[in-house]
Nucleic acid binder design. Structure first.
Lengths: 329, 329
DNA sequence: TACGATGCTGCAAGCGCTTGCAGAAGCGCT
DNA sequence: AGCGCTTCTGCAAGCGCTTGCAGCATCGTA
């Protein structure tokens, strides 16, 4: 492994000059800069990150704590974060917490000394705990709001609400909601939104589930949904929705003539052949990008600079295709 | 940040003793050990990882290079690797290469100094390049075989072949294969396997695609498959398969009476209500676990110890449900 | 020509930990 | 009691880099 000293010897300068040439080129005369660069190139110099971290206190690592990897929402956000991390010249450490408070706390405290900052995707710790971490290393929170910390959230409920509004406008009164996994925070929020929207006395939301957000589970709920008398169904995500539609269509129920459907989806729009599915689309990658970019900005900022502002990103809603007036029974 | 020195002062010993107490407890007397531990606890001591890395040359980080995060195969393997990394007391850095050779090479060389070893998921670099990396840091390869390196692969083709055998046994001669994404290595391998299996002159494989491995794309292929005269269909994964079945069933084609279907799936078995889908199940988590565990073993081993042996993990195959004799036309 | 200002460079300290070496203390034995 | 041996502890060097400080040219200006 070629070190500073090797380059210095070859270039005929001192190690400090090499160091400066690599990290603050404007402090070195053009001539020596060039010599040093050539020498560094020649011996394949690569600064030892540990040594650098020891002196500067910066590691070039960012930690991202996520509940899991299975969910497309998580995966998309991670991918976005990852891309932005690369862009700011850092690496991302992914720590999976399984949504457990202890694991989250453990990862936080173990990684504290090894990273320059944290991105917390749907953290479960208390606001106080998170704020305490933020005192040592900058923290950006995603998909949860924590007062005093920079957080990025996404307006899925808003999108879902707009779909529900449209259903009401079309004349639906009884809407089924195929829920997500038990205990899911996102699911709870969506349910709440629907409840908040169905305030008119003639409007009803019937919840099916909780269920794993999979095709099979949606399919399994088909009979119950049909028996419920609902003329529209919203699903936690599009896998569930496709399962529902699959099973309904086997029974001769047509979309959207007989039932309107939509997904509060995590990521891309899904389609049936010939029938685009109405859905809420969440800009997951952007969420990750923004979080990391804000984090990087905080790390690079002079102390005393105010934190970047929190934001709620809008969701896109597609209303076409699978929404129609209820059948006149 | 409490350091070694702080603990030493409080415990009334030297910093070296504290260091030994933390890393090699058997080298200090029980009494001082206890005192040191109490003091460390009291001041909240946490060794500075950068300083430790500087002296020991070990960072406690492992890098895992993956083509992407979107694919359940990748996600599952990462999750397994992640879990095992935690178990061996290390952290995993995920670097996404998008399957590009340059990005892979860049990540490899940039991370070389920052990690204790590499897990490469389906690397695209040449065997020589990878071996060269292995000379500096231990490398374990997943889902590709590289002579001279420890690699873990999974016998998906074997599983797929068994399904095809079963179809032949049931009397099918014309089998459709709904292919995966263009340029996919896994897809190519599966296609090859089928071709190798259909050697009898009366056996034919018809390939549809390539296509994105999604529900919609499988659905879109339905008409073509029906027109092809195939009595059985294999799909790259279960999303594609479900799409196909969905669209076929809308047209009155029943599974398995009219057509037998199976998926060369990445992860869990999928089900239709009432009809379990035949599929190849890949032990993705185990793959990740084994890779990391082998890597950790190599890192901890005395120099000169032989590399852990490469292995191909068997796949589970479910033959039930969606496989039946072809209809007598 | 002489002076201070400016631009580059080298020296040396130090980041916080690990570890070889040597001294101190404790042990069993004759 | 005295010896050699083991066990434990402290000293100090050093991991490879960054950075404050001081020294030395060099330059512009009076």
């Amino acid at each position: 492994m070629a070190g500073l000293e090797d380059v210095a010897r070859l270039a005929g300068v001192s190690a400090s000059t090499v160091s400066r040439a690599m990290t603050r080129p404007d402090m070195v005369s053009p001539r020596t800069l060039e010599r040093v660069r050539a020498a560094a190139e020649r011996v394949g110099f690569r600064a030892n990150p540990a040594a650098r971290a020891l002196t500067t206190g910066r590691t070039g690592f960012l930690a991202m704590l996520v509940p899991g990897l299975d969910n497309p929402f998580y995966a998309g956000t991670i991918a976005g974060a990852q891309a932005m991390a690369k862009e700011t010249g850092r690496w991302l450490i992914i720590a999976v917490t399984d949504g457990s408070a202890e694991r989250e706390a453990a990862a936080l405290s173990e990684l504290e000394g090894q990273v320059d900052g944290f991105v917390l995707l749907m953290p479960v710790g208390t606001a106080d705990e998170l704020k305490r971490v933020n005192e040592r290393r900058p923290v950006v929170v995603v998909n949860r709001k924590v007062g005093g910390l920079t957080s990025y959230t996404v307006d899925t409920p808003g999108g879902l609400g707009r779909i529900h509004d449209r259903l009401v406008e079309l004349g639906h009164t009884d809407v089924a909601y195929l829920a997500g996994p038990p205990g899911s925070w996102m699911d709870r929020r969506r349910r709440q939104t629907l409840a908040d929207h169905a305030t008119r006395p003639d409007l009803r939301i019937q919840v099916f589930g909780p269920m794993r957000p999979e095709f099979t589970e949606g399919a399994a709920a088909a009979d119950a949904v049909r028996a419920s008398g609902c003329t529209a169904a919203l699903a936690y995500n599009s896998a569930v929705l496709l399962g529902l539609v699959f099973e309904l269509s086997r029974r001769g129920v047509r979309v959207p003539e007989d039932i309107s459907v939509a997904a509060a989806d995590d990521m891309a729009f899904a389609d049936l052949p010939g029938t685009p599915l109405a859905a809420v689309r969440v800009p997951v990658a952007e969420l990750g990008e923004r979080a990391v970019s804000a984090l990087a900005a905080t790390i690079d900022a002079e102390p005393g600079t105010p934190r970047p502002a929190s934001r709620t990103l809008p969701t896109a809603v597609r209303l076409a295709g699978s929404l129609a007036p209820p059948p006149r029974s």
